[in-house]
Design a protein around this nucleic acid. Sequence first.
DNA 1: CGCATGCGGTATCGTGGGATACACCCAAAA
DNA 2: TTTTGGGTGTATCCCACGATACCGCATGCG
Lengths: 220, 220
Amino acid sequence: MELYQSGTWLISDTLMSSMVRDDSLFVRRHFRKDEEIYVQESVSSKFYVVVSGLVQIAMIREDGTEVILELMGPQTVCGEGAAIDGLPRFSGATALEETELLEFDASQLPQLAAHSPEFVVALLQITALKQRVLAVRLEQLSSREPETRIMEMFARLARIFAETRCDGKLIVPKLTHEQIAAMTGNTRVTVTRALGRLKERGEIAIVNGRILLMSERFRD
Amino acid sequence: MELYQSGTWLISDTLMSSMVRDDSLFVRRHFRKDEEIYVQESVSSKFYVVVSGLVQIAMIREDGTEVILELMGPQTVCGEGAAIDGLPRFSGATALEETELLEFDASQLPQLAAHSPEFVVALLQITALKQRVLAVRLEQLSSREPETRIMEMFARLARIFAETRCDGKLIVPKLTHEQIAAMTGNTRVTVTRALGRLKERGEIAIVNGRILLMSERFRD
DNA sequence: CGCATGCGGTATCGTGGGATACACCCAAAA
DNA sequence: TTTTGGGTGTATCCCACGATACCGCATGCG
């Protein structure tokens, strides 16, 4: 497996299939645009596999500002952290589009472990992957130049959401500058400025509201 | 359980005991000061429970700067992320003092899951906790004032390492300004300046090289 | 004892990003 | 159609942080 792939929380097909093998373990759920899936600080043992759509994971800081942890697309798992440790959710999840989820319940994990161990091992691997992604994000945030932070974030998103084109990779979800700011820890104004410079340098372009990554490393 | 405790990766006694129940699963290991426990980018299925001592988890960025992810004391687990997902280690671990560890091997997790499920569930809860801590750190890093970042980091460390005194909480490990800088994403100079201001305001004091937290919220 | 090393404190300088404000565009609503 | 509101592009000001350099001090080691 290529190292550079490591910053994703995309679940491999193998993992995925061992999660959904036993369909008595989950319930299909549907959320409309802007509907909340779970809210920060609530206690719940539910976690979710994204089947289709787009989910935003965000934390509200004490001062009221929002930090977007991640956007989750199909083949990702969310909410399992708090579902497993039983503490109040440290982040909230919102559907940014019509979204289809599988809802699991972590409350009978011990029993589950006994009769379908591969499910628990799959879950373990997923949480390990997410730990990795969070660590990579931390590393990125400690970079100071906004351009770097933004491009690193785009590169990460591209691995989940990109559609490959002849001239680069197009990030499918539409992102407002404000969202990018909340994801990279900058202000909206700084994001606008940095994007301008990136456009000038030919590293990115905007194609009807979406980000097109054009650096060489995004060509195939 | 108190919400404010959530930013720790201290393992509960219950979890701990279900890890060490079967002593055929681990090997005792000893590391001297400044010895490397594992290095970044290496591949290994080993992970560790800290019994005594102090372990620093750090990532080296491409530009050569070091980001300290965490200091781990007794009753913590480290290295399990990469051990489980099998990818190269995203961080390296070094013993900052004489350190006693239990070394586990994650390579036979599937078999393990079958005959001692509670071990796997314990591991799962640990990774979930760490996910939480990483998310909290991310949240903190997105704050801009160095004082806030530093104080939040101290508060976190205090939950693992503090010794309660009549006048506040004393953080046991000695920290250089450089380490604090690498943990909070600032420069050494900024840390020195910020600490000066915090001292003036009476929020902290230095007691023979260690940090004493003196704000009201650290009194009992 | 003297030297080296690493850490803490401080100064100087330049800059880039935060705060704030405002104008423009476009799409959806009324 | 007009209006409203959210998103984007800029300008202006200011200050705090990064870069760099230097000094003094403690510790340790030959």
